[in-house]
Design a protein around this nucleic acid. Structure first.
Length: 427
RNA sequence: GGAGAGUUGGCAGAGUGGUAAUGCAACGGACUCGAAAUCCGUCGAACGGGCUAAUACCCGCGCGCAGGUUCAAAUCCUGUACUCUCCUCCA
């Protein structure tokens, strides 16, 4: 959530920033007009409340002295009615302001390409050698199905499209990959977490998915209680400290967690219909950081580095891009995507998204620390995939495929595969 | 699933209609070469508004949350969330 004070004090700056995210300036004008009204009403109602408090003291004093106070009581009855009326107006204004405010995205940070077109995302650098093949490389789903380690058909029977069974060495490979990721993050000082996979609406609001993106997730209604399947471990990890003041000496805090991520993929019908790229349920190792505002840009670099390190150790070619303002997620001030090379698609595909959310989530989720003056301030939150596991498996299958249809296991994963160095057809 | 108890400031803990005791912690000062102890004083989260150079001052709000009754609610009423205990069930 944005600080309305910033909108109030720097309206033109805010409009320019949000225009690059597709927000109409009319909304800003509207929220500022409501804010002006609101402050006017607050002044009136608080004056009346001050008066009521004062007279109530007098009434109390008279009652104690066994004197008659019926005049004041009668007068206060009217005041009470006026207050009730003004408070109702105020609540209405608050609701209207909040409705707009919670739907405004974060301001893009300096240095972010200011464009609504995702093609204006900027490539920062490339790493690694793309593999060359003396045969036509197959897509990972073809390889996986041929080896009998991925089964999309039976998953479709049991669950529907965009689900998969990993089988045998495939399941083992998935496990090898995420164990490798978690172990590497542990070495970098991340605290490993296992989180709830069902969260409440307050949590979904805190990380910015609600109220705007309810159609992207799976929600479960039980009686009058609503829970949502997490679309990313970012939700339970960031909300871990919701409504808390973190002791400043604990910062920065780094969490990592493996979890399934559940996404409805509404609106992406027809895109990436085959393979592991776009699933309703996929595994992801997530990294989340909480830090002081002055450290967040440095921590974003650390986050990107920690994600890159995994790809480098796996020997997978990738590049790093800075997303254009219009393409970054709702909560993000700046997002750097890591895109891994997929030979069969002959292009880079997102495998990690690292974002600095500045104080945007912290304000929603009320996550603070005490500054040197002891005053509570919002922390900055960051999140990044480290990495998407299914897409990593897809990348391994495609980049490490051999002419005979087998797949070589990347060296760092061999210990995690119990010494197995090659996946060949099993059945 | 059933029954009961609870939720008050950083922590502990009073307060059953008149507007949040007290203790600890914290902060300032005194004493001291310095510290501890002691003494004196200050301080009650977070938030909103006003006035500002201001973290000063004034006001509102504030006793899990949301409503209601009342001139007035931590206190009474209704709903709800969570925690604990016992029973039941259970991986």
């Amino acid at each position: 959530m944005l600080d309305i004070k910033v909108l109030r004090q720097e309206p033109q700056w805010a409009k320019d920033k949000l225009a690059a995210r597709g927000i109409d300036g009319v909304e800003i004008d509207e929220v500022l007009a409501l804010d002006t009204q609101r402050r006017g009403v607050i002044g009136q109602t608080e004056d009346l409340k001050a008066k009521r408090n004062k007279v109530s003291d007098e009434i109390a004093a008279k009652k104690r002295a066994k004197e008659d106070a019926s005049d004041q009581i009668a007068a206060m009855r009217t005041v009470g009615q006026d207050i009730a009326k003004l408070d109702a107006t105020l609540k209405d204004l608050d609701d209207k302001i909040r409705y707009i405010l919670v739907r405004l995205p974060n301001f893009p940070a300096d240095g972010v390409p200011m464009s609504l077109n995702e093609d204006d995302s900027r490539e920062e650098y490339k790493w690694g050698e793309r593999p060359t093949f003396d045969f036509t490389p197959k897509a990972h789903y073809e390889i996986g199905e041929a080896l009998g380690i991925l089964d999309f058909e039976r998953a479709a029977k049991v669950s529907g499209s965009r689900f998969v069974y990993y089988k045998g060495a495939g399941a083992r490979l998935e496990r090898a990959v995420y164990n490798f990721f978690l172990d590497e993050h542990a070495k970098e000082g991340y605290t490993e977490m296992l989180t709830p996979y069902l969260v409440n609406d307050d949590s979904m609001f805190g990380t910015g998915q609600f109220p705007k993106f309810t159609e992207d997730v799976y929600s479960i209604n039980n009686e009058d209680q609503e829970e949502t399947l997490i679309p990313t471990a970012e939700v339970p990890l960031v909300n871990y400290y919701r409504d808390e003041i973190i002791p400043s000496e604990k910062l920065p805090i780094s969490f990592t967690a493996l979890s399934p991520a559940f996404r409805s993929e509404a609106g992406s019908a027809g895109r990436d219909t085959r393979g592991l790229i776009r699933m309703h349920q996929f595994n992801k190792v997530e990294m989340v950081k909480f830090c002081k505002p002055e450290d967040s840009w440095h921590e974003l670099d650390n986050l990107i580095h920690d994600a890159e390190d995994l790809l480098q150790k796996l020997g997978l070619a990738y590049h790093v891009i800075t997303l254009a303002s219009g393409d970054a997620s709702f909560t993000s001030a700046k997002t750097n995507d890591l895109e891994v090379w997929l030979p069969a698609q002959d292009r880079y595909r997102e495998i990690s998204s690292c974002s600095n959310c500045t104080d945007f989530q912290a304000r929603r989720a009320q996550i603070k620390y005490r500054d040197e003056n002891g005053k509570p301030q919002f922390v900055h939150t960051l999140n990044g995939s480290g990495l998407a596991v299914g897409r990593a498996v897809a990348a391994i299958l495609e980049n490490y495929q051999n002419a005979d249809g087998t797949v070589t296991i990347p060296e760092v994963l061999v210990p995690y595969m119990g010494g197995q160095t090659v996946i060949a057809a099993e059945d």
